[in-house]
């Protein structure tokens, strides 16, 4: 098998930039959706139950 290897790279030389790009986009989508859900859909939905947190 090893004779068929085209190129051997070390642990830190493996750079899946496509995967990095995907998880970055995924992360940004999560952040935007959270902000939208909490601040626009929830906190913007007056009347909101208010009170003092005991």
């Amino acid at each position: 098998m090893s004779s068929e290897l085209e190129r051997e790279i070390g642990h830190d030389e493996f750079d899946p930039v496509g995967t990095l790009g995907l998880i970055t986009i995924y992360f940004l989508i999560l952040v935007v959706l959270w902000i939208f859900m909490y601040f626009v859909e929830f906190a913007g939905g007056d009347l909101t139950v208010v009170g003092v947190v005991v």
Binding site: A43, V49, V52
Partner: peptide, 13 residues
């Protein structure tokens, strides 16, 4: 939300 906006839950007080 709870400290700044004052959003609270309905409790049994």
């Amino acid at each position: 939300g709870s400290v700044g906006l004052g959003i609270a839950m309905v409790d049994d007080s």
